[in-house]
């Protein structure tokens, strides 16, 4: 069951989101926004920006998980928005892994000690000599997203991260709270828009005239790696039947199923 605050107005949800951000500013010193240039994290970015600027604080840096498979349009948008709004972008990237990709595969023996240790941690079957350069396998997601992300959080010692997690995305996320604690590295996730529905996100984007990733126009509902994001319609995302179709239908469904296990190791 998707969890939803069905009768609460968007305006109220925006107020609540801002209260959560205010509270986070009171509690934490070193905050960052987890940003992909997609719709949800851009909404969070804007909410954080508004609250920080109203307090004369500079906008905190953004972390972009850079698995090397982003669309060119994503990098363009990241550069454009960060330059215009004036905040830093930190690219969380597994350089070792990406530098060793050959024909879409990586020879396990080529990986450095840190990556091997990470594979051990998730009980990777070392009888396999190769792994795919894919975001949709458990080990690919772990090495290309979770590991560089955690390294970046640890390296900069961020104590709070703003994310665009929403209850209605999928079941695994429906138990999320506004602020929750994570370990290794120890930090807090601040999730101001858990109450927003997909429709709320679009309404807010257009109301605030926020920059929309061009791929949403051509029908993508959810954007990540260019080899894995698929569209299910040619209509712009916000014109599709949001209530009766799956937002992440274009993403590999196996991955949606492995979500619980991914989260156990620190995935978003």
């Amino acid at each position: 069951m998707k969890r939803e605050e069905k009768y609460l107005s968007l305006n109220a949800k925006i107020h609540i989101a801002k209260i959560v951000i205010e509270d986070s500013i009171e509690q934490f010193n070193r905050q960052a926004i987890v940003w992909s240039a997609g719709k949800d994290s851009t909404v969070v970015l804007n909410l954080v920006r508004e609250v920080f600027l109203s307090r004369n604080l500079k906008i905190p840096p953004a972390i972009l998980i850079d698995h090397g498979q982003h669309y060119d349009e994503t990098y363009d948008l990241v550069n454009k928005i960060s330059a215009e709004w004036g905040f830093k972008v930190l690219y969380a990237k597994n350089d070792d892994f990406i530098s060793k990709v050959n024909n879409g595969k990586v020879l396990i023996d080529d990986l450095d000690e840190d990556n091997i240790n990470e594979l051990k941690k998730i009980n990777f079957d070392f009888n396999k000599k190769y792994m795919d350069y894919s975001l949709e396998t458990f080990e690919g997601n772990h090495l290309l997203k979770t590991v560089p992300f955690n390294n970046t959080v640890g390296k900069y010692r961020f104590d709070a991260l703003y994310t665009g997690v929403r209850w209605d995305e999928n079941d695994a996320r429906s138990m999320e709270t506004f602020i929750s604690k994570r370990n290794k590295p120890e930090h807090y996730r601040v999730q101001p828009i858990i109450l927003f529905t997909e429709r709320d996100v679009w309404d807010y984007m257009f109301d605030r005239k926020l920059p929309v990733h061009p791929l949403y126009y051509s029908g993508y509902r959810s954007i990540d790696g260019k080899y894995d994001s698929k569209k299910i319609s040619d209509k712009p995302a916000w014109e599709q039947d949001l209530d009766n179709t799956e937002e992440r239908a274009g993403r590999a469904q196996d991955k949606e199923k492995m979500m619980e296990r991914l989260r156990e190791f620190g995935y978003m």
């Binding site: 500013i25 934490f28 010193n29 070193r30 905050q31 500079k58 905190p60 830093k88 930190l90 900069y156």
Partner: peptide
């Protein structure tokens, strides 16, 4: 740049 990020909200 690293110092600025380290200093966080009290940069």
């Amino acid at each position: 740049n690293d110092i600025s990020i380290f200093n966080g909200s009290s940069d």
